[in-house]
Simulated assay, not measured.
Amino acid sequence: MNAAQFRRLALALPEVVEHEHHDHPDFRVGGKVFATLGPDGSWAMVKLPPDAQADLIDRDPEAYEPMPGAWGRQGCTRVSLTAAQRTDVEPALALAWHTRATPAIRKKHGGGR
Score class of each variant (00 low, 15 high):
residue 1 M to F: 04
residue 1 M to A: 07
residue 2 N to I: 15
residue 2 N to F: 14
residue 3 A to R: 03
residue 4 A to Q: 13
residue 4 A to F: 00
residue 5 Q to S: 15
residue 7 R to F: 00
residue 7 R to N: 08
residue 9 L to H: 05
residue 9 L to E: 03
residue 10 A to N: 07
residue 11 L to Q: 12
residue 11 L to S: 06
residue 13 L to S: 01
residue 15 E to A: 02
residue 16 V to H: 00
residue 18 E to N: 15
residue 20 E to R: 14
residue 20 E to N: 11
residue 23 D to Q: 12
residue 24 H to R: 07
residue 25 P to D: 03
residue 27 F to I: 08
residue 27 F to E: 11
residue 29 V to C: 09
residue 29 V to Q: 11
residue 31 G to S: 08
residue 33 V to T: 13
residue 34 F to Q: 04
residue 35 A to F: 07
residue 36 T to N: 10
residue 42 S to D: 12
residue 43 W to E: 09
residue 44 A to W: 05
residue 46 V to S: 00
residue 47 K to Q: 10
residue 47 K to F: 09
residue 48 L to K: 05
residue 48 L to N: 01
residue 54 A to K: 04
residue 56 L to M: 07
residue 60 D to Y: 03
residue 60 D to I: 05
residue 62 E to P: 01
residue 63 A to V: 04
residue 63 A to H: 06
residue 64 Y to F: 14
residue 65 E to D: 14
residue 66 P to W: 05
residue 66 P to T: 07
residue 68 P to R: 05
residue 69 G to M: 09
residue 73 R to G: 03
residue 75 G to C: 01
residue 75 G to S: 04
residue 77 T to M: 03
residue 84 A to V: 05
residue 86 R to D: 13
residue 86 R to Y: 13
residue 87 T to I: 11
residue 88 D to N: 00
residue 89 V to S: 02
residue 91 P to N: 10
residue 94 A to M: 06
residue 95 L to Y: 04
residue 95 L to R: 00
residue 95 L to C: 04
residue 96 A to L: 04
residue 98 H to N: 06
residue 98 H to Q: 14
residue 102 T to F: 10
residue 103 P to I: 13
residue 104 A to C: 07
residue 108 K to A: 12
residue 109 H to D: 07
residue 111 G to W: 13
residue 113 R to C: 10
